[in-house]
């Protein structure tokens, strides 16, 4: 199976690989997936006083499409508000990266990671956690 140029690009030059200080109150961390399933994503957001995401970082254990999905997600997150962030839909990632059907779960994982990071941030800041419908594709 050939990868799309966009997946290759993110794989070769991933954007925003790294770690934010998870002990800070304005940093939200989402850790999703499982080693047994062959992919684990950790996505972190740092939110400024206006509720804007000023930095986003990821680390991913997984295939090229999983790495590309999380790299793309961090790019899209920067500059968004936390409320806008949770509106990112996995199908937007699928379209942007031209992921084939067998790789849709990578985009779902990225969406889940965003939601988990936002909820972690909300929890730390005394906000109620958002409830999400269970993702269908896994």
């Amino acid at each position: 199976m050939a990868y799309s140029d966009k997946v290759l690009g993110h794989y070769q030059n991933p954007k925003n690989v790294g770690t934010l200080d998870k002990s800070k109150q304005n940093v939200g961390t989402g850790l999703v997936g499982a080693p047994e399933c062959g992919d684990v994503m950790r996505l972190q957001i740092e939110v400024d006083e206006n509720g804007l995401i000023k930095d986003a970082k990821f680390k991913t254990f997984g295939c090229g499409s999983a790495i590309a999905s999380s790299s793309l997600a961090t790019e899209w997150l920067k500059g968004k508000t936390v409320d806008e962030a949770v509106k990112i839909d996995n199908m937007e990632i699928v379209e942007e990266l031209h992921l084939p059907p067998v790789k849709i779960h990578c985009s779902v994982l990225a969406e889940d990671a965003i939601k988990a990071a936002v909820n972690d941030y909300r929890k730390k800041n005394g906000l109620p956690e958002l409830k999400f419908e269970e993702s269908v594709v896994h």
């Binding site: 990868y3 290759l8 794989y11 062959g38 992919d39 254990f61 997984g62 295939c63 999983a66 790495i67």
Partner: peptide, 11 residues
């Protein structure tokens, strides 16, 4: 360990 095979292949 700690690297996924297909991701590794892609390199």
């Amino acid at each position: 360990k700690y690297v996924e095979g297909e991701g590794l292949l892609m390199g």
